[in-house]
Design a binder for these strands. Structure first.
Lengths: 367, 367
DNA sequence: GTCGACATGAGGCACGCACCTCAGATAACT
DNA sequence: AGTTATCTGAGGTGCGTGCCTCATGTCGAC
C-alpha cells in the first residue's frame, strides 16, 4: 500500500562511500543556529526572517550577517507546514474548442488533482477568447481575491497587459503561457520561441520539398495573435534565406471558423494551381486533412503543422501531415506551477528545467 | 533576499472564486482523523502506518479500512521532517571521455548541488566502462552501505544484471539510465526507446535524401551496447519499409578509438565510392566533421547523428550535420531522481512526466 | 531623572508526523 | 484460576518553522 513505508535504513555506512566523501552530513543550519551565531534570541531571528517590525536596523544587519556566514537556507517545507500555507493558483484560459486548448485544460485538471497533495489548489478561470476587455475585467477580479498566482493564456492586448500590471501591483505571481505578453510585468513566460518555431517549420518544409521550384500555402487562424505573427515571420525568414526557390503565398485566414476553412481551402487550392506545401500555423488541422484527402492530394502536398493533438497525430499516422512542431503541454503546465510557486516563495528557478523545448514530431517519433 | 517572504495573504476570499467552487478546503485528513475514525489510539495508527509489530491482524484491518474510508494520504514532507530523513542516491557512471557522458556527469553534479536543499545527497560512482565484473563488484558494495537508491548507466551484461537483482533484494531503489537492463529487477528505465530513435534517424535520412538511389554509411562505436544495436535495428527497419532505394552499408566500428575512426573513415569513403548519407550511431562526431570537411564532402553528405553535444551542436551550426536525435540530459537526471525518490517513498510516479521524449534537433531549433 | 516608545528575550503552542516508554487491558496458555 | 504473552492507549519529545504573549531591557526626549 502506497502509504506504508519500510523502517528507515540505518545511517551506519561502512566502506566505499565513507572513504570517498568525508561524510559531511553537516546538518543544515537552522534558525537556532542563526540565533546562536548572531547572539540574539530566536524571536528576533524570526522577526528578521519574516520581515516583521520591532528590530533595530543594526540588529537586522547582525542577523543577516550571521545568516550569510553560516549559509542558512530556509526549509520551505517546514515553514509551509508551520504556517499551514496553501498555494492557490488560477489558470486563465480562453473558451475555445481548439484541440490544443482542450489539451491544456485537460492537463491543468489532471495536475490540479495531484497538486492537492502539495498544498496547492488550482482553479481554471475560463474567459471568452476574443474579448480583451472582459478578460481584463476577470483578471481585475482576481486581484481582489485570495489568489497567490495566475497563469494567463490570452492574446496580447493593452487591456490585458494593464490588468497583468495591476495583478503584479497586488503582489500576485503572474506567468504567461504559450503566447507572451511582453511589456506587462509578468514574472515569467512559459512557452516556446515562436519565431524559432516558424523557422523550424520553414526549414523542414525546405528540406522535405527538396531542390527545385515549389509553391507553399500558409493557413492561419487569425493574424492577430502574436504567436501566429511570429511563426509566419520566422517561416518567411528562413525560406528567404535558404530556399529562395520556394514561393510562399499570402496567408489564408480561417478566423477560427471551421466551416469557413472547409470552404476556403479547396477553392484556394484550385485557384492557385499546383501547391506543393501547406503550412498550418494554427487550428484547422481536422479540416485540412479532410480537404486534402477528398481532393486526392494527401500524398502530393507536404504538410507541416503546429501542436500535437488528436488530429495532427492522426494526420501523421495516416501520412497526410509530414511533421508537427509542438510544445509539450504537460511540461508547460507543470513548469508554470513550479515557476508560480518559486515566485511566491522567492526562490530561484532552474532555468534549464523551465525552458520549454521546441519539439519536432514525425511519424517515427510519435510519443 | 531569497529567504525573506511576504506576510501570508489573508484567506478571506470574497467573490468569484468563492462562488465558482464550493470552497472545499476540506483539510486533508491526518493521523488523528484515522484514530478517531477507526476508534483506536494514535499509537496504534502509527504502528500500522509504519509497519511496526504489536498490532492484532483484526485491528490492522480496522485501521486500514478507516484510512481507505477517509482517504488519508501521508504527508511525506511532514513525515520526512519528523523522521529527519535524508535520501542518498548514487549515480553509477562509466569513466569515458565521450561528450555525452561528460554532459551527464556535469548535469548530475549540478542537480546534486540543488538537491541538498531537499534532504537529498547525490554521489557519482565512476566505473570502468568495459569491465562488467568490476562494475558488478562496485554495485555489490553499494548493497552493503547506507544508500537508498542507485541510478545505473552501464552496458547490459549478466554480471551487472545479477548485481542489480542483488541490490533490489537489499531493498534499494534502482533505475537504469539511457540503456536499459531488461530482466534485471530495476524499478524503472529512464531513457528513450532506442529502436524508435533509430527509426526516426532512418526516416529523416530518407526524407532528407529525397527520391532516387542513395548509399548510406553507418558509423558506430561498438555493436556490443544494447542501445547501438537497437538504433541500427530501427534504422534498417524503416529504410527497408519506406525507402527501398536506399542501400545501407555494413556498420563501421570505431571501437571507442578516435584515432581509429579518423583513419578508418576516409579510407571507407574512398573505397566505397559515392556515399550520400552518413548515420553516426554513437561517439565520434568530432572526427566525422573533420574528415568530411577535409575531403570537401561536408555539404554533399547528409549526416544524422545522436546526442546533442558540443561537437554535434557545432556540426549543426556549420551545416555538416543535418539532424541530431537526442534526449534531454537534464530531464533524464531529474527524472531519475524523482523516480528514485518515489520508489523509496512508495508513491506513484507521473508516467507522462517521466517519459523521456525523443528530440529531433536541426539547426533552426537548436536550444 | 523620569517617562514613554521601542527592542529584545523567554517561552509556549501549533503544524503533521515519527518514535519512544510504560502502564494497563485482553487473550492465550498452563 | 493464575500466569504469561501479546495488544493497546496515553502521553511525551522532537523535526524546523511560524506566530503569539508577556516581561524586561535600552534608548532618547523632556
Amino acid at each position: 500500500m502506497a502509504y506504508l513505508k519500510g523502517a528507515p535504513r540505518s545511517l551506519a555506512a561502512t566502506s566505499l562511500l565513507l572513504t570517498q566523501e568525508r561524510v559531511e552530513t553537516v546538518a543544515r543550519p537552522t534558525v537556532n543556529d542563526i540565533a546562536k551565531e548572531a547572539g540574539v534570541s530566536l524571536a528576533t531571528v524570526d522577526r528578521v526572517l519574516n520581515g516583521r517590525p520591532g528590530v533595530r536596523k543594526k540588529t537586522v544587519e547582525k542577523v543577516n550577517e550571521a545568516i550569510r556566514r553560516i549559509g542558512y537556507v530556509r526549509d520551505i517545507t517546514a515553514a509551509n507546514l508551520a504556517r499551514r500555507r496553501e498555494y492557490h493558483f488560477v489558470f486563465v484560459l480562453p473558451e475555445s474548442d481548439s484541440l490544443f486548448l482542450q489539451s491544456v485544460r485537460d492537463m491543468v485538471n489532471e495536475v490540479a488533482e495531484l497538486s492537492r497533495l502539495d498544498r496547492t489548489r488550482i482553479t481554471i478561470l475560463p474567459v471568452p477568447a476574443h474579448d480583451p476587455h472582459l478578460i481584463a475585467a476577470r483578471l481585475g477580479e482576481l486581484a481582489t481575491v485570495a489568489v497567490d498566482g495566475v497563469a494567463i493564456l490570452a492574446p496580447e492586448t493593452p487591456p490585458v497587459r494593464d490588468a497583468i500590471r495591476h495583478l503584479k501591483e497586488q503582489d500576485r505571481a503572474v506567468v504567461t503561457l504559450v503566447s507572451d505578453q511582453p511589456n506587462s510585468d509578468r514574472d515569467h513566460f512559459v512557452g516556446v520561441d515562436n519565431v524559432m518555431a516558424g523557422r523550424t517549420a520553414g526549414a523542414l518544409m525546405g528540406r522535405f520539398l527538396g531542390p527545385g521550384r515549389h509553391r507553399v500555402m500558409v493557413l492561419v487562424n487569425s493574424m492577430q495573435a502574436r504567436d501566429s505573427l511570429e511563426r509566419r515571420f520566422g517561416f518567411d525568414q528562413v525560406i528567404a534565406e535558404s530556399w529562395p526557390d520556394i514561393e510562399v503565398l499570402p496567408s489564408l485566414e480561417g478566423r477560427d471558423d471551421m466551416d469557413y476553412i472547409s470552404s476556403l481551402l479547396p477553392r484556394a487550392l484550385e485557384q492557385r494551381g499546383a501547391v506543393d506545401g501547406l503550412y498550418v500555423l494554427g487550428a484547422g488541422n481536422r479540416e485540412v486533412s479532410r480537404v486534402l484527402k477528398s481532393l486526392g492530394l494527401s500524398q502530393q502536398v507536404t504538410v507541416i503543422a503546429h501542436e500535437l493533438t488528436e488530429s495532427t497525430r492522426r494526420g501523421l499516422e495516416s501520412g497526410v501531415v509530414d511533421a508537427v512542431i509542438t510544445q509539450n503541454v504537460g511540461h508547460i503546465v507543470r513548469s508554470a506551477i513550479r515557476v508560480l510557486r518559486a515566485t511566491c516563495d522567492g526562490t530561484p528557478i532552474i532555468e534549464a528545467q523551465e525552458k520549454i523545448r521546441l519539439e519536432i514530431v514525425i511519424r517515427e517519433n510519435l510519443p
